[in-house]
Computed example of a mutant assay.
Amino acid sequence: MVGNDIIDLNEASRASNWQRPRFLDKLFSEQEQAYINSAENAFKMVWRLWSMKEASYKLYTQIAPIRFYNPKAFQCTINKDLGTVKYKNFYCFVQSKITSNYIISEARLKKQKLNSEIIEFVSLGYSRQSDELKAKLIDSLGSKFRLEKNVFDVPILSNGKELFHVSLSHHGRYGSYVRA
């Protein structure tokens, strides 16, 4: 099982006002806010933490398939490019990579190197980008796989016999996918 999330830093800068009152309080614990306040680049730390929470949430919903919104409950800790996220009895490792264009985070139950494939979209528009991302995933695996969603709306790959966990993410000009 795996979860990933990508943040287009230009899009986040353009579309978000993370410095507005109470924004950080709604999404981040005191410890996470301390990471933000002491970071060399607070903007990138905000979006790194957010991508860690999103990747972990995607992994969690593969284990306990229920949809909910409670990002503050997913508690992040960071040690260089490796982090951990805890939610109730759930615990996972999150590898993050920060570039000048995007932040990618990948959550797994065991420590593992980042395996997400990153694409820069040709298409404009959310629906077209989603289709482009799914097509790239299927192309990378061969035509014997189908991308489906289970009854809880979690994406899975099927070859007719087996099911494989997959995570897809896109934001702004960038998309990413990873197969467990």
Rank of each mutant, 00 (worst) to 15 (best):
E11V: 00
S140F: 12
F23Q: 09
T61R: 13
K53T: 01
M52R: 14
W47E: 06
M45C: 13
I118N: 07
L114M: 13
N115T: 10
E32I: 01
N89I: 07
K26T: 09
K136G: 00
L27Q: 07
Q33I: 12
L109V: 01
S130R: 15
D5L: 09
S143H: 15
G125I: 03
S127K: 14
R22G: 00
K86Y: 03
S116A: 15
L133P: 04
L24N: 05
S29P: 02
G125A: 07
S105Q: 06
L27I: 13
I7N: 03
S140T: 05
S56V: 04
P71K: 05
K26N: 11
A39L: 04
V85E: 05
S123G: 05
F68W: 15
S130T: 13
Y69D: 11
Y91V: 04
L9A: 06
A15K: 13
I7S: 07
Q129H: 05
F23M: 10
N17G: 00
T84G: 00
I119V: 11
N89V: 04
E11Q: 13
T77H: 11
Q33N: 12
Y35H: 05
S127P: 00
A42M: 08
S51D: 08
A12K: 10
E54I: 03
K88T: 06
E106K: 04
F90A: 08
N37W: 04
I78T: 13
R67A: 02
F90H: 08
S116K: 08
F121H: 05
D5E: 09
R48K: 09
R67F: 15
N89C: 00
Q31T: 11
Q112M: 06
L109E: 09
R128N: 15
S96V: 01
T84P: 00
F93P: 04
D139E: 15
V2S: 08
S13D: 15
L114R: 11
Q62N: 06
C92T: 01
W47V: 07
A64Q: 12
Y91E: 14
K53R: 01
A15S: 14
K26V: 04
R48C: 00
V94R: 02
C76Q: 06
N79C: 09
L82G: 01
M45G: 04
Q19A: 01
Y91H: 15
S13N: 15
N101H: 13
A42D: 11
V46I: 14
F43H: 10
K80R: 08
K86P: 00
N17M: 02
E120I: 03
I78Q: 14
D25K: 12
Y126N: 13
S13F: 12
I104L: 15
K44H: 09
T99W: 09
R20Q: 12
I119D: 06
Y69V: 10
K110V: 05
E40R: 03
T77L: 09
G125T: 08
G142P: 08
N79R: 09
L133Q: 05
S130W: 14
I6G: 10
F68Y: 15
L124Q: 12
I104T: 11
K86F: 01
